[in-house]
Write a protein that binds this DNA or RNA. Structure first.
Lengths: 1352, 341
DNA sequence: ACTCTATGTACTGATATAAGTAATAGATAATAC
DNA sequence: ATATTATCTACCGACAATATCAGTACATAGTCG
């Protein structure tokens, strides 16, 4: 049928806006009469609000965060959602909710861009340029309060750059800057710290007496006390402090920050400060003099990177036995670097067998050399890591020994983790070089055949290009800012990205670029390549990430550079201090590179790589039919169309693809994001936690400043400490790779054939022959579709295999290791591991590969749960526990066979729902069953307890719905309820009734309803699946029954109605709550905040709605639904323009998504709270705990304990009426919001409003608009909140169209619901009112205490 | 006995036009017929079979019949309101009304091969088929794709073009006409202009807005001298202007698949000189073509400046390229769906 | 020295792209008259 | 105040269209008083 016009006339509603593409490089010129400034001055509202925010010393604007002004009366209730009014927030670009004026947001963007530019310039020592950026920043009024921090950054750089600048001159400069250039700015304690540091370092050898008065003067100038000055550890190094305390004796130990106090203490009595200062390059002589076995040189950051890792001396010293100390000092240094001997010493002191003993003696405990087992093996069968810590750990007989072992391992892993996060690119480069040289020895052909050797070639070709580009950028940047006109386009672009490109070591950038591109192979639906947009941004991000961790590392080694040696105890002290330091460093780095810059950087690097990367190729000359050899670029930039839209793609040459398919890809996993070897840094605030050197945010925000602002406020307020507690428990669970399962997977994998989820590896695709060209178009089309389907299958198989490859390689690298998953949260509060690819949230295979590091004896109940677990994995999870045990017991033979001959036997385990996990369980059960006393068996297998339709469980509890609660096992029962089966039964009944009435559809369908047909729909119903969506799901289930697709769809439509009806009937109260949530979300997202900018009214009566739905979880986590209209724009890069969203754009909300999203999101925020509460409690009780949203894992022996915790926490969560609480919060938060509604014309009130409008209209000389009314109401509110009594009294007398509603009792009587038939209604501003909560049922959640099938 | 022509009064009562527009003014139609003078091609109109796709209100159809009395005149119209209108006006006329969907390829198979309700004569391709004419109105804004597919059918010699070189009188939005008729170096020059140049000889016959003419090539306009009428002559009046073109298939001889790939990719960067743009054809394209294209002047040109002959030349080089990419795999798969319970 | 204007450029928003409506088609929110 | 028409289409983790042109705002240089 012909397509109706309207379907394609307008393709998208995206508000396309282009980036101000080179704004990053554009500086504010001090021209005071820019239009925007005038606009702001003339706008009384903006002026008022900005003055109020500055006068109240930055206390959060009440209209931004209505809850802040509320006094905290309910503190007795520990689930209170109210936030304390203690936050003291200064200006921060994130700290503006969306609804504040648009103008401020555009300036926010400018601030952000200037910041990142400033940072970049300072890093590159472009001080003059930096200064002019400072001048621009200074002109932004909201930024004044924070300005000194930027100036400090500058001053610090200046000080480092000009170490020989006398302190007096320095002082002059400071005075001059602050008195002439930046008049309104005052120094702070950090400024003083910089001056002190400069003073100490300018006169390193000067007599203390000379320095003392100067420094004392600075200390006296302190704003918040000497302590505050001294807490600037990023400025003052340990040796600075040491001088101040020990030499000059100006300050006392007690004034130091607690984290470094112990270090200074231990330095104080014996140490000779002179040594500390002289010792910058590490003195070997000193080392040689030490004769203790245990004393170690503590090597840090910069120094360690200098150490060549292929040192022949070191090789030679490997076999030096413990306890024998080489007299040769040089050798000692080589051996000594990372404290390996301590570790080895400790380990060898444990009870080990001779083989282990030998392993340990041979193993190099050098983090740089033995980060992870990433070496490629020629023979796929050889999975053995050089040392299997897990096996050693397990074999240790006593708890004490295990502890000692773990503690030594931890010491070693600390170093390895650091290397992992910081040195991975260098490691990759070294591997390439090594392979290249090996291949070279074998001849030119080997170089072509060996991937790494090829990469090394690319690397070497690319490096000079980058260096050249960097020097271009540098010379361009160091020139005086010439007028732009004289520049060509290339240089104009350089000006934009140049400052960033010069920040990172060129070699590192090469490696990153190459690795990223290889990683992105066959992503984004591209057959042999990737999307350009994705590629440039990924590379840009990776570069930025590298820069960030380098920064942290650099400042860390700067501060601690002088602390070079001491005992292991001292090392621990330093480690602690450093970790505190890192937290604060990461926290401070608020600056992120703008997305546009990332894209530009990425594109520059990628285009260089395209230019140099070549592969040798074979082709057939179409004319002579002869084989032709040649060379072609490995990457090629082009475009593809999709529905008439262009899509930039980066194609990878077939030759390279083939090579990649057979390659082990571990190297290209972003090494910063692998699982961790040590416990993640605990979450203490919203941007410090997880990895040690890599910054991650607590919340995965979707580029929404609003989300960040609320999160930050809550975090600073200490409202979400319990969230941290739970999250830290998840992160602290140690795991290891299940060796037995890994061996099976590995075998299957190397075989290359498809197995379970793993697709087979294919090199070529087989396509059907093309029909003749002049066939009917319909035939041609069918063929094209076939080709497409096959190609898509091929490419998805390939990317699937690629993904599996990653998982396996990571698993291989962590064989025998102790590993941890750092977690963070999505915006609803659900927890996810930070490390991609391989984690316990992954597919069945990933889960099967993971077991707990710690083992626990099965004890009395463990075996039972292990058996139940197996039954669950086979899909028998809705029968009573006894039957599940019986299931497992009836398959003991199968279990034995599966465990002993997983691939050669009957492969019973592959018939499970979750085969790999089943296999893992079979392995354990088989071992258990061999034992005489199973209770003694030490189990590592996580046992899952899953909620039965967790969403519905929460709904039932919320609604007090007895019937629903029974269905989802909140009510004790001797048999678990199967919701899906029950719904199927209900549908069946409905159909039978309909059939009797003569309904043909019902007649045909009535015997075909199974649990499976309705399962997905019941599940997704919680997420608000629509009628159409559910129809598709059911059609999928029904399709085997009906031949005709159309027919199947028709029946599905019919059936869906009944399924929906049945669900609605069964979970009636859940649906009432869903509806209530939906309606509330709709009203909120259609409401107007009073102090909204009038300009958001397009035509005076139609505003852009800006309010998103916000609530606080029982744990205090504020949740902001980020659904807004998208605004994307094109950004020019080297390769093409890319289309990316502008994170600073202020967009109206997407009311539809706000509405459909709230019910599932609210429920998820509750189940997340439940999980975190349970996690924290389990942690407290000493359980190992993991979760996949609504599936909770622990050791078999602890399941009973965990179940009790789960129920207790659920009860605790629901003891409060959460819906009521939510409504109260909404009412508070959206108190002064208004909506546009209809008022009955025939009322007094309406008449009054008409009169006001008439008056106003006269005054304005035009028709009034709703925008005008909002303006006056806003003014009234401002007057009412004014500190001046006279203002307040004026406000009280003011009457506006909105104020009239204050006294109205019964709004319902006046408001016209949308059923208004005649033109009796008129559009007015009404106060926002939320719908009434549906009545709560009689279900008492405490009965849950005894419900054993709640989670099972 | 001539068929009565529906007037604007009746036509304007119709509510739904599905975004299509129809010229209702008989005077303009007469001018157009005069100008077309189809008897040049169809020496014997009594032998002529006309297939009218999306006839709409049938004004043109009735006038055509009145003027030439062809052997068969079939109107294919499925949209209910328009079908009803045709039924009401032409039920008892010699005009055949078929309630079929011209969009669906299978419609033609049924009509021609199975039911044999409309069977054109196959003619050799050394001349325009003189017993088969197709008239179509595809003025809907969203239906441009249909025109483009018909065009590619000329290249494939399938669909109605299996009966030989069939002339088509085609109403379309004027923007579409502008794109199709654009010559090299013109702003609107795009892949479909090249397609038109490759497979057809097309003339602009009439257009509903004089302002639109400035988007066309002035030399061509001189030659075509199109009839310009007013927006008031079409119904519904609102909306964008429309144009009528006359499209005759021509001879061609080149590798269509490769040519399609080459033009598609080159026209993406239509303002980038050939010596640079060739890289977007595949790995190492720039190097290969720079060595193969001997005419340095050609290398300086941009794709937008190329004639079809030049595209054919490049295509030839492309097919001779030993390392040429697989042109079949030229698409992306945006929608990967997984997930199930 | 300063202002004004001519000139060119950077920026924004609009439009075209390919060519069976992605495998599908009915409710519903938004917009226009 | 109704009727047409565009926009969805189950949540989250997650990952994105681009080239070119016309018109305009803006900056710069040069000229002139």
């Amino acid at each position: 049928m012909l397509r109706p016009v309207y379907k394609s006339v307008v393709k998208t509603s995206i508000l396309q806006r282009r980036l101000i593409s080179s704004k990053g490089s554009k500086l504010y010129k001090p021209s005071p009469d820019s239009t925007s400034t005038i606009l702001i001055k003339d706008d009384p509202l903006v002026a008022a609000s900005s003055s109020s925010s500055s006068s109240s010393s930055g206390i959060i604007n009440s209209s931004d965060f209505p809850l802040f002004n509320k006094s905290n009366k309910n503190t007795t209730n520990n689930l209170s959602y109210q936030w304390k009014n203690t936050s003291n927030m200064e200006f921060d670009p994130f700290n503006k909710s969306h609804a504040s004026a648009v103008t401020s947001m555009t300036r926010t963007r400018d601030v952000m861009q200037l910041w990142s530019l400033l940072e970049a310039c300072l890093q590159s020592n472009l001080l003059k340029r930096a200064f002019s950026i400072l001048e621009s920043l200074y002109l932004i009024p909201e930024h004044k309060q924070r300005f000194i921090e930027d100036y400090n950054m500058y001053l610090d750089s200046f000080s480092k750059n000009e170490p020989n600048f006398p302190i007096i001159k320095m002082n002059e400069k400071l005075t001059n800057d602050l008195e002439t250039s930046f008049k309104d700015v005052n120094y702070n304690d950090k400024t003083l710290a910089i001056m002190i540091h400069h003073a100490l370092n300018f006169h390193p050898t000067a007599s203390s007496m000379l320095l003392s008065p100067t420094i004392s003067a600075y200390l006296k100038m302190s704003v918040n006390g000497v302590r505050d000055i001294l807490s600037n550890l990023d400025i003052l190094t340990i040796s600075d402090l040491s001088i101040l305390v020990n030499d000059l004796k100006i300050i006392s130990l007690s004034q130091l920050p607690t984290s470094v106090k112990p270090i200074l203490e231990s330095l104080a009595p014996s140490s000779t400060p002179v040594n500390n200062i002289e010792n910058e390059n590490g003195s070997n002589k000193m080392e040689a003099e030490k004769d203790s076995n245990i004393d170690q040189k503590l090597e840090l950051g910069r120094d360690s990177t200098k150490t060549p890792s292929l040192d022949p001396l070191r090789e030679a010293s490997l076999d030096v036995s413990v306890g024998v100390l080489p007299k040769d000092a040089e050798k000692l240094v080589a051996v000594d670097t990372i404290g390996m001997r301590v570790i080895r010493h400790t380990l060898l002191g444990l009870s080990l067998n001779s083989q282990q003993r030998e392993q340990i003696s041979k193993f190099k405990f050098d983090a740089n050399e033995n980060v992870l087992n990433m070496k490629p093996t020629q023979n796929g069968e050889d999975n053995d890591p050089p040392i299997n810590f897990f096996e050693i750990y397990n074999s240790l007989p006593t708890l004490e020994e295990k502890r000692a072992f773990e503690s030594a391992l931890n010491l070693f892993n600390q170093d390895r983790q650091k290397v992992l996060e910081n040195r991975a690119t260098e490691a990759a480069r070294e591997r390439w070089k090594h392979d290249f040289e090996e291949a070279k020895a074998r001849g030119d052909i080997s170089i072509e055949k060996n991937l790494n050797a090829k990469l090394w070639k690319w690397y070497n070709d690319m490096l000079p290009l980058i260096k050249e580009e960097i020097s271009h950028c540098k010379s361009l940047l160091s020139e005086k800012p010439v007028n732009k006109r004289a520049l060509n386009k290339v240089d104009t672009n350089r000006l934009g990205y140049g400052p960033y490109l010069t920040l990172i070591d060129p070699g590192k950038m090469c490696v990153i670029t190459i690795l990223e591109l290889l990683k992105l192979n066959s992503t984004g639906g591209v057959i042999e390549g990737m999307r350009t947009a994705r590629a440039v941004i990924s590379v840009g991000k990776a570069i930025e990430m590298e820069f960030r961790s380098e920064q942290v590392l650099k400042s860390e080694s700067q501060t601690f550079r002088d602390v070079n040696k001491k005992s292991p105890e001292f090392k621990k002290l330093v480690q602690n201090a450093k970790s505190v330091f890192r937290s604060s460093q990461i926290e401070q780095s608020k600056i992120l590179w703008p997305q546009t810059i990332r894209a530009k950087i990425g594109s520059v690097l990628i285009s260089m790589l395209i230019h140099v990367a070549k592969v040798s190729v074979q082709g057939i000359d179409p004319i002579t039919k002869a084989k032709v050899h040649g060379e072609a670029p490995a990457f090629s930039h082009g475009y593809q169309y999709h529905n008439g839209s262009k899509l930039g793609v980066l194609k990878i040459h077939k030759t390279l693809i083939r090579q990649l398919n057979g390659e082990r890809l571990i190297a290209s996993v972003q090494p910063q994001l692998l699982p961790m070897l040590v416990e993640p840094k605990p979450w203490v605030n919203w941007r410090s936690g997880g990895y040690h050197y890599t910054q991650s945010s607590l919340l995965r925000t979707k580029d929404s400043p609003e989300q960040v602002a609320y999160l930050k406020a809550a975090s600073e307020n200490g409202d979400i400490d319990r969230v941290y507690d739970g999250l830290n428990v998840l992160g602290d669970t140690p795991w290891t790779v299940n060796r037995k399962v890994f061996d099976v997977v590995s075998q299957v994998w190397n075989n290359g054939e498809g197995f379970l989820d793993i697709p087979s590896s294919q090199d070529e695709m087989v396509l059907p022959p093309a029909p003749p060209r002049n066939s009917d178009p319909s035939i041609l089309r069918t063929w094209k579709l076939q080709v497409k389907t096959i190609a898509n299958k091929f490419s998805s198989d390939r990317s699937n295999r690629c993904d599996t490859n990653y998982k396996l390689e990571i698993a291989r690298a962590f064989l025998g290791e102790k590993l941890y998953f750092p977690h963070n949260l999505d915006f609803r509060g659900r927890a996810y591991p930070l490390s991609p690819h391989f984690n316990h949230l992954g597919n069945d295979m990933s889960r099967g590969l993971l077991i707990f590091w710690h083992g626990k004896k099965l004890g009395s109940s463990g075996l039972k749960w292990l058996k139940i677990h197996l039954s669950n994995l086979f899909g028998f999870d809705k029968i009573c526990l006894e039957d599940r045990i019986a299931f497992t017991e009836s398959h003991l033979k199968d279990i034995k066979d599966s465990a002993e001959n997983p691939l050669t036997g009957d492969r019973w385990w592959t018939t499970a729902d979750k085969p790999w996990q089943a296999l893992a369980t079979c392995f354990e059960l088989n071992e258990v069953l061999k034992m005489d006393n199973p209770e003694e068996f030490v189990s590592h297998q996580p046992v899952h307890q899953d909620g039965t339709c967790n969403g519905l469980q929460h709904y039932a509890a919320l609604g007090g719905d007895v019937e629903g609660a029974t269905q989802v096992n909140l009510v004790p029962n001797d048999k678990p309820q199967d919701v899906y089966a029950h719904v199927a039964k209900l549908v069946q009944k409905r159909l039978e009734i309909a059939a009797e009435k003569g309904d043909e559809n019902a007649e045909i369908l009535k015997d075909k309803i199974t649990r499976k047909v309705v399962k997905q729909t019941v599940m997704t119903n919680v997420y608000g699946v629509t009628y159409v969506g559910a129809t598709f799901q059911i059609a999928k289930q029904l399709s085997p029954i009906f031949d005709d697709r159309k027919e199947s769809l028709d029946f599905s439509k019919y059936l869906t109605k009944h399924v929906f009806g049945a669900i609605r009937e069964l979970f009636h109260s859940a649906h009432l709550i869903q509806d209530w949530l939906g309606e509330s979300a709709k009203r909120i997202s259609k409401s107007i905040r009073l102090d909204v900018d009038e300009k958001s009214f397009k035509n005076g009566n139609k505003p852009d709605f800006m309010s998103s739905v916000i609530w606080t979880t029982p744990l205090g986590l504020p949740i902001v639904q980020p659904y807004r209209e998208e605004s994307k724009k094109q950004v020019e890069t080297n390769l093409q323009t890319v289309f990316i969203s502008d994170p600073f754009a202020v967009n109206p909300v997407n009311a539809r998504r706000q509405k459909t999203g709230l019910p599932p999101n609210f429920i998820h925020s509750l189940d997340a709270s439940h999980m975190l509460l349970s996690a924290a409690e389990c942690g407290k009780q000493g359980l190992d705990f993991a979760s996949v949203h609504d599936s909770y894992w622990t050791h078999a022996s602890d399941v009973d304990t965990m179940n009790v915790v789960l129920r207790d926490q659920f009860i605790k969560l629901h003891e409060v009426d959460l819906v009521m609480r939510l409504r109260e919060e909404f009412t508070q938060r959206y108190k002064s919001y208004v909506k546009i509604g209809k008022l009955k014309r025939a009322t007094d009130l309406a008449q009054k409003i008409i009169n006001i409008r008439k008056d106003l209209s006269k005054k304005l000389g035009r028709n009034t608009t709703l925008a005008d009314e909002i303006y006056f109401e806003k003014k009234r509110q401002q007057l009412l909140n004014s500190p001046l009594p006279e203002d307040r009294s004026i406000g009280e007398k003011m009457i506006t169209t909105v104020s009239l509603f204050q006294d109205v009792k019964d709004l319902d009587a006046l408001e016209l619901e949308n059923g208004g038939d005649e033109n009796s209604g008129m559009s007015v501003l009404l106060p926002l009112r939320l719908p009434e909560i549906p009545p709560k049922g009689d279900f008492d959640v405490t009965v849950l205490k005894d419900s054993q099938y709640f989670f099972s | 006995m001539s068929i009565p022509i529906p007037g604007i009064k009746d036509i304007s009562k119709l509510k739904f036009f599905y975004g299509f527009k129809y010229l209702w003014n008989p005077t303009v139609h007469d001018k157009i017929f005069d100008k077309l003078d189809i008897t040049k091609t169809y020496k014997n109109p009594k032998k002529l079979k006309v297939l009218d796709l999306y006839p709409g209100v049938g004004v043109q159809s009735a006038m055509f019949y009145n003027r030439y009395s062809p052997q068969q005149y079939s109107m294919m119209e499925r949209r209910s309101s328009l079908y009803k209108f045709l039924q009401a006006n032409f039920k008892d006329s010699p005009l055949q009304i078929l309630k079929r969907d011209p969009y669906d390829w299978s419609t033609y198979l049924h009509l021609i091969d199975e039911e044999r309700l409309f069977v054109p004569e196959v003619q050799p391709s050394d001349r325009i088929n003189d017993s088969f004419l197709t008239v179509a109105n595809v003025t809907g804004e969203g239906s441009e794709g249909l025109i483009m597919q018909w065009l590619s059918c000329i290249g494939n010699k399938n669909w109605l073009y299996r009966f030989g070189k069939m002339k088509m009188l085609l109403w379309m939005p004027s923007t579409t006409a502008r794109k199709l008729l654009a010559r090299p170096s013109m702003r609107s020059r795009s892949k479909c202009s090249v397609v038109r140049e490759a497979f057809t000889d097309t003339k602009l016959i009439a257009i509903s807005d004089r302002d639109e003419l400035k988007g066309f090539d002035s030399k061509c306009l001189e030659e075509w001298d199109p009839i310009v009428f007013s927006a008031a002559d079409i119904w519904p009046t609102k909306g964008k202007p429309i144009a009528l073109v006359e499209m005759d298939p021509t001879d061609f001889d080149f590798d269509v698949e490769n040519w399609d790939y080459v033009t598609r990719h080159l026209m993406i960067l239509k303002r980038t000189p050939l010596n640079i743009v060739m890289d977007s054809l595949g790995h190492g394209g720039q190097l290969y073509f720079n060595s193969r294209i001997t005419d340095k002047e050609l290398l300086k040109k941009c794709p937008i400046d190329l004639t079809n002959d030049e595209f054919i030349y490049i295509t030839k080089l492309f097919t001779e390229w030993p390392f040429k990419p697989d042109i079949l795999m030229d698409f992306v798969d945006i929608n990967q769906t997984e997930h199930s319970g």
